[in-house]
């Protein structure tokens, strides 16, 4: 019983803050970080991981996102086998990647492929912030560029869900170059009349924000998602003033004209379907 869990005080006393944070998403129970209410994970999953109490949008893994958006048994994954080398021979890098592979069941921080959304076929790339904070290294850049390229060849629209802390430091300038690489792929895609929906989720910052995430024909974001170029702390240090609480949230960007819409997760599938429907016969100029 739920009541029993609360009564066993010992259990709580032994869990360190760090362990608690790591444990919560994996376990049976889940605590909303926003309102601190505790749920059965299954219950939350049924609600697309939106808090039933305060509407907080919990982060979704790539698999969960695809499951929530795509029609059952229509998803075909691309380039599963691509995994990182260590181009800069950075100490411990491969170990860290392998650890995250175990944790997430993914080979890298993005899952790409194609599938159907209410019957409309589309290419998709979904980043997963649990894998090296969703940072963009060569494999992430390559998988996203290949997905864009495949979408162009197969004349499919592409939807990219971003969740990324930015560049992957351990790959240095090669990580930076993925910004141009993905943007170059999008230029070719756009020229062929392809439709690109950029869907920013928490967090979308740095190099990802300053490349493909901002280049959608439609730029959307989830409520309260952190989106921005530079880190909040760096900005505060530079300008020596405190920033407003809503700084770099989806709502902040929306207010400043940077987003087409902030979309509640319960509306995600409906709105994407409408856009795919409107573009069904258009946008094919070549």
């Amino acid at each position: 019983m739920l009541r029993d869990i609360f009564n066993k005080k010992r259990k709580y006393a032994t869990i360190s803050k760090q362990a608690e944070r790591e444990d919560v998403p994996e376990g049976l129970m889940m605590k909303c970080p926003s309102c601190r209410k505790i749920y059965y994970r299954k219950e939350l999953e049924k609600n697309n991981l939106i808090c039933l109490n305060c509407d907080h949008h919990h982060p979704m893994s790539a698999k969960e996102r695809i499951h929530a958006l795509m029609d059952a048994n229509t998803f075909e994954e691309w380039d599963v086998q691509l995994t990182s080398a260590n181009p800069l021979e950075f100490p411990d890098y491969i170990e860290k990647v392998e650890k995250d592979q175990k944790k997430t069941g993914m080979n890298e921080a993005v899952m790409t492929g194609k599938g159907k959304i209410n019957g409309y076929e589309s290419a998709i790339a979904v980043m997963d912030s649990r894998f090296r904070m969703g940072s963009m290294g060569s494999v992430v850049g390559e998988k996203i560029s290949r997905a864009i390229e495949k979408a162009r060849e197969e004349r499919l629209p592409i939807i990219i869900f971003t969740a990324s802390g930015g560049a992957r430091m351990q790959e240095g300038v090669l990580s930076l170059m993925q910004m141009s690489k993905t943007s170059v792929a999008l230029e070719r895609f756009s020229r062929s009349g392809g439709l690109f929906i950029s869907y920013m989720t928490h967090p979308t910052t740095g190099g990802v924000s300053a490349s493909f995430a901002s280049l959608g024909d439609y730029n959307f974001a989830e409520p309260k998602a952190l989106i921005g170029f530079a880190g909040r702390r760096i900005i505060e240090q530079t300008i020596r003033e405190k920033l407003p609480d809503d700084f770099q949230t989806a709502e902040f960007l929306y207010k400043h004209g940077q987003l087409d819409r902030v979309i509640h997760r319960s509306e995600m599938k409906k709105i994407i379907t409408t856009i795919l429907d409107i573009h069904q016969d258009g946008g094919d100029r070549s």
């Binding site: 230029e187 924000s209 490349s211 760096i234």
Partner: peptide, 26 residues
Amino acid sequence: GAYPGKAAEERGQSEAIAKNLREMAG
């Protein structure tokens, strides 16, 4: 680097850079 400031974020530092990357490609 590009300036990390409040006004820069408000006016879309990310978008400005991203757009240049794509447009220069074409």
